[in-house]
Amino acid sequence: MANIAAKRIKREIIEVVKGEEGVLKLELVNNAWTDLLGEIAGPPDTPYEGGLFKLEIKIPETYPFNPPKVRFITKVWHPNVSSVTGAICLDILKDQWAAALTLRTVLLSIQALLASAEPNDPQDAVVARQYIENEPLFELTARHWTNVYANGPTVVWEFNQKVQTLLEMGVDEHNARVALSTYNWDVEGATEQIFS
């Protein structure tokens, strides 16, 4: 690992720890400065409120001249985040990256993305479609995911029950949730898709 990258990372961890937001966390996964774990709090007044979201951060050899690779570890239901891989569609992680940007800015930008979805520039087409066609259902689904995967406070009993129904048919829990979310919580549609 290049000297400059290590030095930057050290400073960036301190910057986040000192930061007064109290909504960000950044720590090393190993001693090599290449893998970090980030954590952001779901922004208030959003379906992600109260949840804690973990992020995998990989630092390339050429950091900070190339962007870090960041994806959600915690499963998220959001138009700009892949519900499957956690990949994030965010310009500063691609071509709008600038060497002067920091991981703190990156984490804050991801947090801001949770608060303001860009359904016209989607990462996950299924989620984006739901967002556009049925926003209340999207919100409830996102809240449910936040509850199940990110320790959010809102329990959606109806959705839990539907997942349970599929569990009893022998479907894996996460697959059941994805299928139900995709089919707007229509048990029949989800079942059909899983068993076809």
Binding site: I4, T62, F65, N66, I92, Q96, A98, A99, A100, L101, T105
Partner: peptide, 24 residues
Amino acid sequence: CWSMHFEVQIMQGVSNTIQCMAQE
């Protein structure tokens, strides 16, 4: 840092469009 920035960009095949390192 400018040197490193240019080296990384050149290695990635960028030439005429190399930009400043500041955000935005």
